[in-house]
Design a protein around this nucleic acid. Structure first.
Length: 490
RNA sequence: GGGCCCGUAGCUCAGGCCGGUAGAGCAGGCGGCUCUUAACCGCAAGGUCAGGGGUUCGAAUCCCCUCGGGCCCGCCA
């Protein structure tokens, strides 16, 4: 990019510093403490006081300057927050003082040595004895008050968004803490965290277009995973019994407020348990995450409101019963494809005529039932035609043992009592292939082979972690919980 | 894929309907100020109005195309 006038001015300062024998990019700054240490020490002082015995070294980014002739204030921000620096010509010498003001700019990374103090107006401060430039910022930071507003720029230049928005930093710290909480919950329940391949010969376990790339070593195309399901179930065949993976999946599709081409999934599989067990386990997880989210973001009304939707117990609705109730029809599952297609058309769906009955039922559910959710809700016992990897329901004909968990506006997760009959699995895969007539739902022959060796009765769940973080932090767009969402290159 | 909206100084935004020398604040430069915290006061500077084409005596403004982005709808379980 072309150098701007402001950058040229800052580069001139770099040159000036170097010619004065000062290194604008020194190697280290040993012994610095977090800014909170100075604030704590200053808490014991009254307005206008300083304590020469409490010396500190801090470092951070210079956010703002307020000059008053022979006194100046500066705000230095580190990971702990913002600290005011108090600069006085009479304490450091006028020549030194003038040189600092001339060479420093907002955005510079700065080290400061000084003593704890409180300004006359009561602001905890570091009364500076010495300043050290640690890294000159050649480009100016975003505007100090409004920060970076342009949505595109906040995503493309996330470092500038983070630099200028404490809320953004807070949100991503909360995300990390929530992921930690998820891990602790599964670990405490005896699950083993595993890592399965991202690169696979066949992308299966969900219906989605994969990203395809090339292995030079194998001289074969490989695909990025679209789900974690099938490798994890193989681990249960191998005897691991309780496993989970927290990792990235990739679907070659659009990015919108609830979809990202690369997204973080949590999948867990649990032998000798069924979907009722998983539902209770999930409710326990969500309850704990919601409590944690409120602790993490005490200042955020949006987070509090988000967490409010996670009040337990979560209501549970039967997919078919609820849909029939909302539509005012009976015996929905007895209806043929043509009739379901017409009903879906009436509901405004434009899915292709060749779509499966399961697709039409899903569309009807999306239209008549999903908008009625005003809090986290379980939907259970879906029609078998919608689901190729779930075990048929033990007592409801034409259904599978499945639940989905919804937050108002989007799906958070999907769980089954897993299908473990190898022959039935093979047949369902083949039906799915025939019905769709495309390669979207890839047939994983080795997975069927693994099932033949015996998969214990089990339950499994997949959770959309980005969406979970959105819900718990009260964030409206998935782009605001992913640090670097995919954007067109420019 | 369809509809609506946005793109003006490094950043935050006016101006656009109704065409007539492109404005402010922050940041930066120069000067002033020993308690400010979006500090303040004065002076000067800073522009490919996303890009291209058209209409016009004259286009940031009206029209068309392209690029990038946002929102809604559709599709993608």
């Amino acid at each position: 990019m072309e150098e701007t006038r402001l950058e040229a001015e800052r580069r001139a300062k770099v040159a000036r510093l170097r010619s004065a024998g000062k290194e604008p990019y020194p190697w280290s700054f040993a012994g610095r403490v977090p800014s909170s240490a100075v604030r704590s020490a200053a808490a014991a002082l009254g307005p206008g006081e300083s304590d020469p015995k409490r010396a500190f070294r801090v470092a951070g980014r210079l956010k703002a300057f307020r000059e008053h002739g022979k006194t100046a204030f500066a705000d230095l921000e580190d990971a702990d927050g913002s600290l005011q620096l108090l600069l006085r010509a009479d304490l450091v010498g006028e020549e030194e003082y003038r040189a600092w003001l001339a060479d420093l700019d907002p955005g510079d990374i700065l080290g400061a040595d000084g003593v704890a103090a409180v300004s006359r107006r009561g602001e905890p401060s570091l009364e500076v004895r010495s300043l050290t430039l640690l890294a000159k910022a050649v480009s100016p930071p975003p505007e100090k008050y409004h920060g970076l507003q342009d949505v595109e720029e906040r995503i493309r230049s996330r470092y500038l968004d983070l630099m200028s928005s404490p809320e953004t930093r807070q949100r991503f710290r909360a995300r990390a803490a929530l992921l930690g909480e998820i891990r602790r919950y599964f670990d405490a329940a005896g699950f083993t965290e595993v890592e399965t391949p991202v690169l696979l010969p066949v992308a299966s376990g969900a219906a989605a277009a994969p990203f395809v790339t090339r292995s030079h070593y194998l001289d074969e195309d490989v695909r990025l995973r679209i789900a974690l399901e099938l490798p994890l179930k193989r681990l249960l065949v191998g005897g691991l019994e309780k496993v989970y993976e927290l990792g990235r999946s990739f679907r070659n599709e659009d990015l919108d407020s609830t979809h990202s081409p690369e997204f973080t999934e949590l999948e867990a599989y649990w032998a000798y348990a069924d979907y009722h067990d998983m539902r209770r386990f999930t409710e326990g997880l969500f309850e704990r995450l919601a409590a944690r989210a409120v602790d993490l973001l005490p200042e955020s009304p949006a987070a509090r409101q988000g967490a409010e939707a996670f009040r337990t117990p979560f209501p549970t609705v039967d997919f078919v019963d609820e849909l029939e109730k909302r539509m005012g029809v009976r015996d929905l599952l007895a209806k043929g494809r043509d009739e379901l297609r017409e009903l879906a058309r009436e509901a405004g769906s434009t899915v292709p005529d060749r779509s499966s009955t399961g697709t039409f039922l899903d569309k009807l559910f999306e239209h008549y039932v999903e908008p009625t959710f005003d809090r986290v809700t379980f939907v259970v016992d879906h029609p078998a035609v919608t689901t190729p990897l779930a075990k048929r329901h033990r007592s409801k004909p034409g259904r599978v043992e499945r639940f989905e968990v919804f937050y108002p506006g989007y799906e958070l997760g999907n769980a089954y009592t897993e299908l473990n009959d190898a022959d039935e699995q093979e047949q369902r895969f083949r039906e799915q292939l025939g019905e769709r007539g495309d390669d979207v739902y890839a047939y994983d022959a080795d997975f069927v082979r693994a099932l033949r060796y015996g998969l214990p009765p089990c339950t499994g769940i997949g959770l959309g972690v980005d969406r979970l973080v959105m819900a718990l932090t009260g964030t409206a767009s998935i782009k605001d919980v992913i640090l670097f969402p995919l954007v067109r290159s420019r």
